[in-house]
């Protein structure tokens, strides 16, 4: 009992992440490109998250929105919601934030190979899913058809507009979007995200589904998916919970016996559907 243990930094003590690029997406969301000291790789899986900290404002879990890459930086999509994220939004290139991680389990990318991919993203849920979408698009030949469904509250709330346009124009991608509230010169579809399923030809037996969005969306998307015969084991959901430590210790993110920061945030519905507080 006398020995003191000092775990590696990045797990319980943050390292310095330098902001090397900032892009505004909407009135509330910005994307920050972050570089670790000495150009170290984050080495994350799509769906994982990091703890972002600013001294004076504590830490918050933020999902990684860029795909794993051999490059030396990564992207975080941040909504200005609380004290820490508002401060982040006022920061400039060259400023420094604390980074711990990556934490948790992401999407099972290897198991997904060979399948058709169906992505269902609602609102800010596109941020973590974008990591997987881009991972798949970078290895297009390893996957079957790619379908992306995106729902946002208003046209102005939509994220990554340039990429949405790119997906829309790509003949190898079936991209559909809908907004809840019609506004301005919006000529696209209006309605909740589940309306996008109407008239779609999907092959549930050979499809992997990745879903991320607000909690209420899961209930209705799951009803839709299960009614169409998608398998519980091939529906992956990313859960948002409040994480303070990322180490399975602080108890804040617990769903039943699971620590979302360790065994999640991505769970198959086969597993999550049996947790009694998950959905």
């Amino acid at each position: 009992m006398r020995e003191l243990v000092r775990p590696a930094a990045r797990i319980d003590v943050p390292v310095e992440g330098k902001i090397i690029g900032i892009r505004r997406l909407t009135a509330r969301e910005k994307v920050f490109r972050i570089e670790l000291p000495g150009g170290a790789r984050l080495a994350h899986q799509p769906g994982q998250f990091v703890m972002v900290g600013l001294y004076g404002s504590g830490e918050a879990p933020i999902s990684i929105t860029s795909p794993p890459s051999p490059g030396e930086s990564f992207e975080l999509c941040v909504r200005a919601a609380g004290a820490l994220t508002h401060r982040l939004h006022s920061m400039e290139e060259g400023d420094v934030v604390g980074i711990r991680g990556p934490f948790g389990r992401g999407f099972p990318v290897r198991e997904m190979e060979g399948y058709d991919m169906l992505f269902v993203a609602g609102g800010l849920g596109l941020a973590p899913l974008r990591s997987l979408i881009r991972y798949v698009l970078e290895r297009r030949d390893r996957f079957g058809s790619v379908t992306i469904l995106y729902g946002a509250r208003t046209p102005a709330d939509r994220l990554f507009l340039d990429e949405l346009a790119q997906w829309e124009g790509d003949r190898s991608i079936d991209f559909r979007q809908s907004i809840d509230v019609g506004e301005g010169d919006w000529t696209g579809r209006v309605g909740v995200i589940t309306t996008l399923f109407r008239g779609m030809e999907l092959k549930p037996a050979r499809t992997m589904v990745a879903v991320c969005g607000p909690p209420v969306m899961y209930r209705f998307v799951l009803i839709e998916l299960l009614a169409r015969g998608f398998l519980e084991s091939r529906i992956y959901l990313s859960f948002e919970r409040r994480m303070c430590c990322g180490l399975g210790k602080c108890g804040r993110c617990q769903i039943n016996g699971e620590f979302v920061c360790r065994s999640g945030p991505v769970y198959s519905y086969l597993h999550a559907g049996r947790l009694r507080e998950a959905l």
């Binding site: 900290g53 001294y55 504590g58 303070c244 430590c245 210790k249 602080c250 108890g251 804040r252």
Partner: peptide, 26 residues
């Protein structure tokens, strides 16, 4: 054993701040 993490900023320049954890409860 559940906890939350807060920062305490230094009052004077040159002093160090503290990242603290405090027990919280479900």
């Amino acid at each position: 054993h559940c906890y939350a993490v807060d920062d305490v900023l230094p009052v004077k320049r040159g002093e160090s701040g503290e990242r603290r954890r405090r027990r919280t409860g479900c």
